[in-house]
Nucleic acid binder design. Structure first.
Length: 629
RNA sequence: GGGCAUGUGGCGCAACUUGGACAGCGCGCUCGGCUUCGGACCGAGUGGUUGCGGGUUCAAAUCCCGCCAUGCCCGCCA
């Protein structure tokens, strides 16, 4: 169903190797052989370390084995011939056949090229970024949101059905603080609502040292949690206004969701009570009558340790789900919510359209007190994009869930942990509001504005101009590409120390660089008189240069997407994008396409396939490829 | 005290999960390239005991053990 040119070539190579091993009197399984095969960066098309493996089975010099295997190899459809280099077997493709295969793979379904069958229809819910509804997104939240978005894209392109969910904690202390500020402080909203809330929140935080105010806020939070009073209604209204504002930021970065789940609705839907019932039935809960946890409902840590590792020596003996005063902990709510995600609890949520239409054309649903039934949840896999600081609670959650369901807990609940974003001058602490204010602004909105400014400067300096009337749109796209790429090129688990200089890099190794390669490809195709499908003979005009290098790179797209999705590592994608962009740039500088005589048909086809591949990869990155930037 | 993550040329990163052929890329620095498809470009050069010490292996940045440094976490908070 999905084209994967390398799959066929690899399979054939494996068969030829298998036949060779057979002659040496060794029978090997397909997977044993395929494990030894790799695609080298240069010099050869496909390689194998099989001689080492065979040498381990029979007493013989691997170089000798390589020689025999290479010399004995017959020509296949895609494999032309092989040479032994020391103990390695390196093979060359039949370029006519392989070239045709690649170009055709792209042309058959251009939109879908790069997609693969990895997920085969399984349903996954991706939770991100779950920012408190009391402040604007800062660059740390942005990293989360971008990670979640791209992982979702990658999974979608890998045949998963993806639900993009955002969990809104509208019962938290932060919302109570904001509401208290609104009631008691003189300032009223006079700018983007999340920004205003954030500034006010800093203000309230300063007043927290006053125990009376602290007490008032705590009471307010309890009131909100009970959910019946005017203040509770007001808190939700507040939070909704804030989320609306935050989503303006999301949209400006091409980030979209399917559904918002509000904590107040989880409470309202009484999912929690049902979850506890099931947990009692599965006898994973205890209610000690004496000791530290007297009167609490808890899970024993010993039990958790039996199913997950990496907790270390934990001092406490149990994790509390229901406190002795009868209220539930965050962990308990999260546990209940995950039971909903995995379909243990029939959905009692009601949904409304929070937004009729996001810029991507789709509605954004939200849980609500009243509304329609929808089929959200009940998934095969849940991915939570959450900072590495929350590793421990996430591991506990996974442990408890595993006690409930061994298979799903271990395999299907994924904490996609990422390193926090810091600043040279210190940490991004929402509590102290160090990232907001007049002097230092590290909000996602500000970052985008800076990047847009830089984009416009670059265009101005180059003496070119944006397409008529499209300056803002193009500048935003390029800016988004720069920022997304910058956050994604670093492996998720690594911390990022944010620097403006690095974030606003538009040269090689950047999102704009990749967009530029795409635009150049588009430009060639625009100027071409005629585009036609190449015949096999056209591939005789392939050289050893960048044209063939491009063909080989294009062939890798489906595997790259699958690898990035399987490992939850978008930097696999950015690496590849860079590789293919840079190879295209070299091709562009050194080989002419238009009016290149007999080679023109082939080269145009390669440019076309490269453009399609680059375009699909940029889309996976969350960037709309533009033909003119 | 324990757990987890990170440590790769001056700087930012990749390769580690699944051990393989001279450790890749960008920035910086030095030098060079626009009368042919878009200079947000391309080429050449500079720069590395992969934190340290052991071990396993034909082969270690990669696996194992120990140590050092940095960060985060270990609540009847959310």
């Amino acid at each position: 169903m999905y084209a994967d040119p390398l799959e066929q070539a690899t399979k054939e190579f494996a068969e030829l190797l298998s036949a060779g091993a057979q002659k040496l009197g060794i029978t090997l399984g397909q997977d044993e052989i395929e494990k030894s095969i790799s695609i080298p960066k240069e010099n050869y098309d496909i390689s194998s370390t099989l001689p080492f493996y065979i040498a381990g089975k029979i007493r013989k010099d691997p170089a000798e084995i390589a020689k025999e295997l290479a010399e004995g190899m017959t020509k296949g459809k895609y494999i032309d011939h092989a040479v032994a280099v020391g103990p390695y077997i390196n093979a060359f493709f039949d370029r006519r056949e392989f070239g045709m295969l690649v170009i055709r793979s792209v042309a058959t379904d251009p939109e879908g090229y790069g997609n693969n069958a990895l997920g085969s229809g399984r349903k996954v819910i991706v939770e991100s970024p779950s920012v408190n509804p009391s402040k604007p997104w800062h660059i740390g939240h942005l990293r989360n949101a971008i990670l979640g978005d791209v992982i979702s894209n990658l999974l979608e392109r890998s045949s998963y059905t993806v639900e993009r969910e955002d969990y809104i904690d509208d019962l938290g202390l932060q919302v109570a603080e904001s509401l208290w500020g609104y009631i008691h402080l003189p300032g009223k909203p006079d700018k983007k609502f999340d920004q205003w809330l954030g500034e006010q929140y800093v203000e309230v935080n300063r007043m927290l040292s006053n125990p009376e105010i602290k007490k008032e806020i705590d009471d307010l939070q309890k009131e909100i949690e009970e959910g019946t009073t005017e203040n509770a209604r007001k808190a939700r209204e507040f939070a909704e206004k804030c989320v609306e504002a935050q989503y303006q930021t999301a949209f400006s970065y091409n980030i979209y969701h399917d559904v918002l789940i509000w904590e107040s609705d989880i409470v309202r839907a009484r999912i929690f009570e049902e979850a506890m019932g099931i947990a009692w039935e599965k006898s994973i809960l205890e209610k000690p009558e004496t000791g530290t946890y007297a009167g609490c409902t808890v899970v024993n840590i010993k039990d958790i340790k039996q199913v997950v590792s990496g907790l270390g020596d934990v001092e406490s003996e149990a994790k509390v789900l229901i406190k002795s005063n009868g209220t539930s902990t965050y962990l308990a709510k999260d546990f209940a919510f995950h039971m909903w995600k995995f379909g243990y609890i029939p959905s009692r949520f009601k949904y409304v359209k929070f937004m009729e239409k996001q810029p991507n054309g789709k509605p954004l649903y939200s849980t609500a007190a009243e509304g329609e039934q929808k089929e959200f949840g009940n998934v095969d896999m849940a991915i939570n994009v959450i900072g590495s600081a929350q590793r421990y609670p996430q591991l506990i959650l996974k442990g408890i869930f595993t006690l409930l369901d061994k298979k799903k807990g271990v395999d299907s609940l994924v904490h996609l942990s990422y390193g926090e974003v810091g600043l040279k001058e210190g940490t991004l602490s929402g509590r102290k509001g160090g990232w907001i204010g007049k002097e230092r602004n590290y909000t996602a909105d500000d970052l985008l504005q800076e990047a847009i400014k830089k984009t416009k400067e670059i265009v101005e300096r180059s003496g070119r101009a944006f397409a008529e009337g499209k300056a803002d749109e193009i500048a935003r796209s390029v800016a988004v590409a720069a920022i997304r790429f910058e956050f994604l090129r670093v492996a998720p688990e690594k911390r990022i120390t944010f620097s403006w200089e690095q974030a606003l890099n538009f040269e090689a190794n950047s999102g704009p660089y990749c967009m530029y390669a795409y635009a150049r490809a588009a430009s060639i195709l625009e100027k071409a008189k005629e585009l036609k499908a190449p015949a096999q003979e056209d591939f005789d005009f392939l050289t050893d240069g960048y044209d063939y290098a491009l063909v080989k790179l294009i062939a890798q797209a489906p595997r790259i997407i699958a690898k990035a999705a399987r490992e939850y590592r978008p930097n696999v994608l950015t690496d590849y994008l860079l590789d293919i962009s840079s190879t295209f740039s070299k091709f562009y500088e050194t080989m002419h396409v238009i009016n290149s005589g007999e080679a023109e048909t082939l080269r145009l086809a390669i440019v076309g396939a490269a453009k399609t591949t680059l375009g699909n990869m940029l889309k996976a990155l969350g960037v709309e490829p533009l033909e003119h930037i």
